[in-house]
Design a protein around this nucleic acid. Sequence first.
DNA 1: AGCATAAACCATACCGAGTTCAATTACCTA
DNA 2: TAGGTAATTGAACTCGGTATGGTTTATGCT
Lengths: 205, 205
Amino acid sequence: MMMAGLRERKKEQTRRRISQVALRLFDERGYDQVTVNEIAEAAGVAKVTLFSYFPTKECLATDGVQDDMAAVVTGRPEGCSPIGALRAHCRATAVPLAKDMDVETLITRIRVISSNPALLAAVHGAQMSQRHELAAALADGREPDLTAHLMAAQITAAITTLQEAFFHRLAADASLEQAAGRLAADVEVAFDLLEHGLTHVKGEA
Amino acid sequence: MMMAGLRERKKEQTRRRISQVALRLFDERGYDQVTVNEIAEAAGVAKVTLFSYFPTKECLATDGVQDDMAAVVTGRPEGCSPIGALRAHCRATAVPLAKDMDVETLITRIRVISSNPALLAAVHGAQMSQRHELAAALADGREPDLTAHLMAAQITAAITTLQEAFFHRLAADASLEQAAGRLAADVEVAFDLLEHGLTHVKGEA
DNA sequence: AGCATAAACCATACCGAGTTCAATTACCTA
DNA sequence: TAGGTAATTGAACTCGGTATGGTTTATGCT
């Protein structure tokens, strides 16, 4: 029992094949110029099967690009503030990625997503739905009040902006190392701004 | 010449009729349970005509619910900070509405939008795209840097949260006056948080 | 090994949003 | 009143996504 199951292996394999084929086609011809029928056919699978793995076409493109800020807050060590925990988390991980994704694939995925407004909006929307979880985590058990929601919204917005800047840089020209370096500095800027407020900005007109 | 043209009057009238019919149907049976074909037929218009007025079904539901924060910043009076201008704007207008929309219709529209996750996400997405304009306005001519983008993102997030809280209260039970009153107080909370940072929050664990 | 079960898969037909296009109607202007 | 132009129309089409109902295939049990 529970012996790694051939069934589950094949399933995972099929999922990966669909995702990879889709990404390749998107990258080659652009998201809008590829139909799900083509993806299904190229992956050697029925359209229905494709949709059993990925609920929408968008999910094919954004597969694996996720993060759970709420978990970072709830799982933070003793005596650590929520914002401190998030700052540390952003310092540590340049981009939140699925465990088993190679960098090459990730960059391609980012390129695909960045070059399509609808996909960008979808990623934003996904992060938007994390706001409520984060608000709940910040409220720490109690029903989140307005302040908790505001904090969650601002933090989410900041992190989204960081990711956006990172994506933009990566898609443009910079190497992964360069972009990661810049990101490290940006993280500090963002969290300082979050913690100390907009009025503390130095070179402001 | 330019004498209020019957043509333009009819056009505007048709637009209003489509929007009203759509809103009524959405409110009666729910957004997902109404097809654009039904709306077109009920409005006595061809589907193609409907889509010439509203680019998407979503736009039928969110019609008139927009705001332009960038304009508030760029059009602010002399010697007024961007954030100050936005705070004043939020104080003044409970909800950003089109000039000629009655309150009854607005509340119905909010009820429709609030009761559908996809529509909620669409509204969020629309506000998301305003971020870049706001960042440009904050940069005041220069190319917006990371800080400008971060500020824009945080401000947008805060205002979105305010609107969300207002909608939620309105859809739940409160009267317009009650909700507006609470909103006035919430505006101050939100902008204080924005200006002074998250670490200045009083009752924080 | 042999068999029943359920998971994964498939082809096909279908639905609704949105587009294309040629033909038609209604307004405007000279 | 004639001719141009903007608005409208029906019909056919594309594509994302779902429903149906049937076929293969891994697996668990005996």
